[in-house]
Amino acid sequence: MKLFIERENKHNEMDFKGSVKELLQKLEINPETVLVVKNDALVQEDEALQNTDVVKLISVISGG
């Protein structure tokens, strides 16, 4: 799975199969702080992710 973590401006490639919720748990990212985009579409925490997916984690914290 191709993964882009916007806040860290970091591109990763990882082996992962599971839900969005499980991915965030694995990465230790608080779901309150990100939106998850799978293959260019916003998805919820119950969405299943496959190794072929392109996933973006967009930080919702902005401004100052």
């Binding site: 702080t33 939106l35 985009v37 916003l42 967009i58 919702v60 914290i61 902005s62």
Partner: peptide, 11 residues
Amino acid sequence: SEKEVAAYALL
């Protein structure tokens, strides 16, 4: 919420 606003702006 901040997350709702972010979702709205994205959509």
